[in-house]
Structure formats: C-alpha cells, structure tokens
Design a protein around this nucleic acid. Sequence first.
DNA 1: GATTTAAATGGACGATTGTCCATTTTGTTA
DNA 2: TAACAAAATGGACAATCGTCCATTTAAATC
Lengths: 213, 213
Amino acid sequence: MTGRRQEIRERNRLSLIEAVLDSVAEKGISETSVSEIIQRAELSRGMIHLHFGGKDNLVDEAARHSSEQYYNGIYDLLETTGQTGQEHIEMIVRGDLSEAILNKKTVSIWYAFRGEARNRAAIAAFSDTRDAKLRNLVFNAFARIAKEAGTEHPNQVARDATHGTLAMLEGMWTDYLLHPDSFDRDEAMRIVFRFLRAMFPMHFDLNGALLFE
Amino acid sequence: MTGRRQEIRERNRLSLIEAVLDSVAEKGISETSVSEIIQRAELSRGMIHLHFGGKDNLVDEAARHSSEQYYNGIYDLLETTGQTGQEHIEMIVRGDLSEAILNKKTVSIWYAFRGEARNRAAIAAFSDTRDAKLRNLVFNAFARIAKEAGTEHPNQVARDATHGTLAMLEGMWTDYLLHPDSFDRDEAMRIVFRFLRAMFPMHFDLNGALLFE
DNA sequence: GATTTAAATGGACGATTGTCCATTTTGTTA
DNA sequence: TAACAAAATGGACAATCGTCCATTTAAATC
C-alpha cells in the first residue's frame, strides 16, 4: 500500500492553504497569523515552515489558489454556452456576477489580497483584473460583434468595449464588497446589458444576448 | 501669546495621520506599526495613545481623512464647471481619473483600506464607492439628460447610467492600481465616454460633453 | 516484526507588537 | 520670574509574532 504518505502530505498542504483563505475571509490579512492558521488547519506549528518554508510563501500560494479557482469557474461556464460572441459575453457577465463566483467569501479574499498587491509582487500577479486569457476571450467576442454590426474601427471599438465591460464588472464587485446584503445581482446584470445594448443594439437587450433567426 | 499650545497640538495630531497615510501607501497596512508611524511623524511613542487613545483609532481617523480629501477634490472641481448635466458628468469622469485625484499614493491607500473594510466597520464607512452625495449629483445629471433625450423610463435609465458609470470608474481605478505605469488616462476617459455616447448620442461624444447651440 | 526514513509535532527563541504611565519639557498664567 | 498645567517623552511591560529544530510518530520497506 504505497502513496498513502504522499496523499496525507498533500491533504495537509491543502488544509493550510484553505485555512489561510478562511482566515483571510473572516478576519482579514492582518489577523491571519501563524497561530490562527494552524489552529484552523488543526496541524502543528512547524508545518508551515515544513511545507512552504515560511508564512509569506504560504500566503502567496493561497492567493494563487484563490485566483485559480476564480478563472476555473469562469472557464467552466464558457464550455456550456453557445457559439456567438454575444452569448460568450452574456455568459461571462452572468458568471462573474453569479453566487458561485461572487459571494461574501470570495469578495473578501479578493479585496484583502488586492490591498496587499502593491507591496507584494507575488500577490499582484494573481490579483489582476481578469487575466490576459479572459481579456482575449472577451475581446474576440466583441470584435466579432463589432464586425457583424458594421461598426467603424471595429478593433478599436472592441478593445474599448472589452476594457469598459471588464471595468464595469470590477465596479460591481466593489459594490458587492461594500453592500453585500443590499446588492442586487439581476440589477447589476441589467445595467451591464443596458450599456451593451446601447453600443450594440442588434446583439444585446436588457436580458443579455440577442440571436439572429 | 495664546493658542500656540493648541496649534502645536493640532500640528502633531495631523502629523500622525499623515504618517499613517504615507506608511500605508508605501508599505501597506500590515507593515504600518506604531514604530513605523512615530518614526515618520518624528514624535514619541506615547503620542498615539495620547491623541487617539490607541493605534486602531488613529488608523480609522486616517481613513476618514483620506476619503475626505477625495471628495473635497471632486466637489471643488464641480464648482468650476458649466451647468448642463453632461458637463457635470464630464467633470466627474475627468476629475476621477485626473492625476490630482488618482495617483500612486491615493490608489494604494484606497485599496489598502478597502482590504480591511470587511473587518472594520469604521473603515468600511469611509471606503464606500462614491458616497451618497456624489451618487445623487451624478443621478440628477443623468436624469436631466435622459429627459432631454426623450428616453423612455428616464428615472430607471438614469439610475442605471449612474450605477454603471460609477462602476466603470471603479474598475478604471483597479486598472491603475495593478498597472500604474501602463495605464492611459485619456484612453480610460475615451472608453467611458464611448459608452455614454452610445447611450446618449445627443449629449456625449468621445471627448465628453456635447452642448446644444 | 524489525528497520528505515519521511512527515509531523510542539516548544524554545529572539524580535516586534501596541499599551500605558512616571517623568520631563514647555507654553501659559499669576 | 515663579508657579502651574498641558503636552510630549521614552522606556517598561506583557502579549504576540514567525522561525526553526530536536524529538516523536507512523508509513514504507526489508
């Protein structure tokens, strides 16, 4: 019976990461101490040094883990949607504002790390506003839409639409951070789609994507 | 010669607040210790307890001070602009993205406090996304614009335009936080105005407000 | 079952944290 | 200028921080 050792080892490693994320979500980064972490993970003091070489590395790793979860959530959703540009955009907007991806825990963690990003390069790398891959996905969708709509300067428009849409989603997250209980997901989606409808009236209405016959 | 005492007292008090903001901007909240603060303020250890009763109160006060500066900056700008709704909006957009209001120091401070907002009520109160007063200003401007444009459901549209525009500005701040050196203010403004032009083509173009004859 | 060795434990350690107060300094008043 | 009082000082203090290693535990191998 081999491999049991490594299995336990990896489980413990993951426990530490999850303990960090729980603590950051509940108490904030400044109160996420070694004592707090090992208590949540129900492991001994030395484990952090053993597995990660120190607390800072562990926290960096937790930030990486957390951002990976976000992107995986979005990319998984994209697998299940239609083929048109507007459907892709709708899925990203809905996904980004869905309970599964935007909730009290994720938003707490995301903003806690953001606050440290400026002073810790490793964290900055993972807290980027929607990474290059996602940006490209959105851009390609808008580029198709702009061309279909016969817009002038379709690439420029697509770039601006990408930037503006992702910025608006960012702002919605901030709203949720500061007012998690009064935040209205449907309203947030409608607002994004209202701006997109104004820009591409053939492709969006207040509920999302419009499809041709 | 009276009042000199109080003058020195208040100067020291302010020194402590500014020392906190400098430290938060440069080193982050977690490294802003009592030792760090008093060293920057060139005052003695006991002053924090004497003036604020403790470090936490001082930090809260610094957050308040910082948010006050932001709003004062915006409101001052508004005094100098024209009377139409679209001029007000243009001024807010341009102001919010101007070097005076959005720079490396302010964005570091703003996001550092945001990261703590979830766990510290006093800080949450000051890190709100553009406060009620500013929101009302923007809403009133959009309400006028929507009515002039003859839009259906002008109040609903104005509310959504307000929410969406402020969210987009929020997102632009995040962009700046994560990429301060490659961030392009003019591009950010153009993007916001592109969305506004799409929604209110009689009132905005890519450079901002359009005025009637 | 004995041996080996990787993994986990938990306490010792020096450094640093924020608080607080006895003392000193200095502006104000008598 | 002497007396007073407000303000500032700076070190003592217990508590907590993160690191690290001698020891123990337990899986894997013989």
